[in-house]
Design a protein around this nucleic acid. Structure first.
Lengths: 239, 239
DNA sequence: CGCCTAGTATGGTCAGACCACACTGTCGAG
DNA sequence: CTCGACAGTGTGGTCTGACCATACTAGGCG
């Protein structure tokens, strides 16, 4: 009727599998950690080819909902996991590449989410173990002998940990996915250790300041430092 | 040689296509609106089977980056589009179904994004055509004869439009995806028109209040009304 | 000139095969 | 009896080749 452009989008075979799995997830008969039936089994129960089943599994894979492994035994096959950030970030990254999601908007959104998380975290009960873990991460990052790869990894853990303190899984996932989606751009812009070395010094100091503010339950200050931290970093490496 | 958990994750064949397309997107040799080469062509140029190429195209499809159509001619094949919200929302929806992203967190995140957008919008130049369009949408929603489906559609357009006023594509996309990801839950909780009718009355009034505040450039008031609007709606239908 | 039909290129689906891998149970050596 | 080697089995990953429905294209026919 309305589709002059042929936007019909007929029912795809793999959608049956996706819908079935989503329904089982909602019903609770399928839970994180469970193994999905084998591809050959699913193809038979749904009356579609194995290729179509594989489409569905593959989609769940990139969404960060399953992890697949070959072989036999309990760890093989498609296992339900929960990694929303991975799925969201890959989608975001491609859209950023298409120039329809500006990097500046990503950074701005990330600032929004992280500063909110910092403020919200101070309005909740302090999670001491998490704070201790954060301090431990900063200590590890203070090691001068750390290579860039390891620093990035610890830095990611630090920021994710802070977001987690706010207790909102969606905000954490989105914040992490925003971070991952533009990580490639950061890598490309800073290529030499000579450029990198002074940056690390500043990052360390900023991290400590943010954590101190959070420990003192000063959400406003933590948010402000966080904003300056992120803005400074992208001003430094961004262009 | 390999680790015991088997988390090896060997290089997948389809990733070559994905990487190639992402690179072309970044380089600018591939743009929104362009057609991708045919699957048979891609399978030959990358030296992989058509099945693996299809995996990559399928992934781009669910990400909201391409639209595929059968047939021949300019409108057929895989065409690059930009629909980040579609890709993000499908991922979010599945993760919500898995119980690892609470609906409450989704709502909270949406409030955060929308209230920020409202505030940010008043700090920018007013986009009169958009405001006019928003008023038009509200007028259409005032029609008592409107069915629920149409109301939902207009409501979605209204909220997306407001987010757009802030000028941040990422925030808009995320806000819309959050909205889409939990639309199914709203539908399930409100089944009869008897329940729905009074709700619509309140929604209309709230919408007008929000738009009035925005028109008056009162970002704080708009944000507050928006928060109450969303919170009220999910308190009403949520449980 | 205009309508209709055969042709062609496209994605959608299927069937069947082979591979590498990882666990599992068995069997044999000690 | 213990324990290591090994064949067996089930898993996803990939490929090949085929057929279908569709939608545009070009040519033939009236």
């Amino acid at each position: 009727m309305t589709d002059k452009t042929g936007q019909a989008a007929g029912p795809r075979a793999y959608e049956a599998v996706l819908a079935s799995i989503e329904a089982e997830l909602r019903a609770g008969t399928l839970r994180i950690g469970d193994r999905l039936p084998g591809e050959r089994t699913l193809s038979e129960t749904h009356g579609i080819s194995r290729a179509s089943v594989r489409d569905a599994i593959r989609i769940l894979d990139v969404m960060g909902l399953v992890r697949t492994a070959v072989g036999s035994g309990p760890n093989s096959g498609a296992v339900l996991i929960s990694n929303p950030a991975a799925g969201l970030s890959s989608t975001l990254r491609l859209h950023v590449a298409s120039r329809h999601l500006p990097v500046d908007d990503i950074v701005q959104a990330r600032i929004l989410l992280e500063t909110w998380a910092a403020t919200a975290a101070t309005e909740r009960a302090i999670d001491e173990p998490s704070l201790a873990r954060a301090r431990e991460l900063l200590s590890l990052m203070d090691d001068p002998g750390l290579d860039r790869e390891a620093f990035h990894d610890l830095d990611a853990q630090f920021h994710v940990l802070l977001s987690t303190l706010a207790g909102n899984a969606v905000v954490s996932a989105m914040m992490e996915s925003l971070r991952l989606s533009i990580m490639g751009y950061v890598r490309d812009s800073v290529t030499t250790d000579e450029q990198w070395s002074p940056v690390v010094q500043t990052l360390r100091a900023q991290h400590h300041g943010i954590l101190d503010a959070l420990s003192a339950r000063d959400g406003t200050l933590a948010a402000q430092l966080l904003r300056e931290h992120i803005e400074w970093f992208f001003a430094e490496t961004g262009h």
